[in-house]
Simulated scan of single mutants.
Amino acid sequence: MAGPRTAQRGVKKRPSGPPSGPRTQVRWPRWLRTPVRTPRRRLALVLVLVVLFGGFGAWALYGSDWFRVRQVKAAGTRVLTPDEVVAAARAPVDAPLVSVDTDEMAGRLRAALPRIKAVEVVRSWPHTIVLKVVERTPELAMRSGGKYSEVDDEGVRFATVRTLPKGVPLLEMAVSDSPSLHRFGIDRLRRAATDVVGRLPEAVHKDVRRVRVASYDSVTLKLTGGRTVVWGSREQGAEKAKVLVALLKAARGAHHFDVAVPSAPAASGS
């Protein structure tokens, strides 16, 4: 009689797990099955990717509607209005933002609006151009017919206004017969006048009503209260300003002050 062991020997043991069947093989494209083994193949693949991405980037910047000029803004204006600045810029609306010539636009603004001293044209992605302007500030004003020409701290005449700006001294250029006009030129003489006024401390500057230039070495200030200051040339301006402040305090009743030679100042009653 066969025991359990004998019976078990006759039983064919089935393998565990799912039944085996025909295997399905995935056929990958040959270029994916071929390993990139050589440096040349790696380089070729990199170049293909670079060309693809570069082409897409160029299309996105120049050919698509994603990065085109839709809006132009102006910032930093005080006397000028933002609309004036935007109109003078003549920005190429609907053009690719990357293609905008910012230097050309800045030059166009300075030429059209002399009040602009400096301007920065900034691309603000994805659709905006920002015009950041710095306006000239009048240091002096010159009478021109029935109006006034504003002069900034660089001696540049940049705008004509109907009335004398408040707190801005009047500049008189009495140099028609002066040799200085031929030697230095009118622009440099104007700069000498603005340099003199720019050296004055606020306590004196607010009292200046008129600046008269007779030559490069002869600049005279007219202050409130009928006071006159002989300044001389623009040289030693900082030292002259200090001496003038001390002289005005020491000789309060005087009306005529001379600081042309700062080491030997003078004050008199008339």
Score class of each variant (00 low, 15 high):
A2S: 13
A2G: 14
G17V: 05
P19Q: 05
P22N: 06
R23M: 13
T24A: 15
W28L: 13
W28K: 11
W31L: 12
P39W: 10
R40D: 14
R42V: 14
A44L: 14
L45D: 07
G54R: 15
G54P: 11
F56I: 12
A60G: 10
L61T: 06
Q71V: 12
Q71F: 02
K73V: 10
L80S: 06
L80V: 03
T81F: 02
T81A: 02
P82D: 02
E84F: 01
P92M: 11
P92H: 02
P92F: 04
P92N: 13
V98F: 09
V100L: 14
D101C: 06
T102H: 08
M105P: 05
A106T: 09
R108Y: 01
E120A: 12
P126W: 13
T128S: 11
K132N: 15
T137F: 01
E139A: 14
R143S: 04
Y148H: 09
V161L: 12
P165M: 11
P169T: 09
L171N: 01
V175G: 09
V175T: 14
S178K: 08
R183K: 13
R183G: 00
R188C: 00
R188L: 05
R190K: 15
R191M: 05
A193F: 00
R199V: 02
L200F: 11
A203P: 03
H205A: 13
V208E: 07
A214T: 10
Y216H: 10
T220C: 07
G226H: 03
R227G: 10
V230Q: 12
V230P: 00
G232A: 07
E235N: 08
K240T: 03
L244Y: 09
V245K: 07
A246Q: 14
L248D: 00
H255P: 03
H256S: 11
D258C: 04
D258A: 04
P265G: 11
P265F: 07
A267N: 01
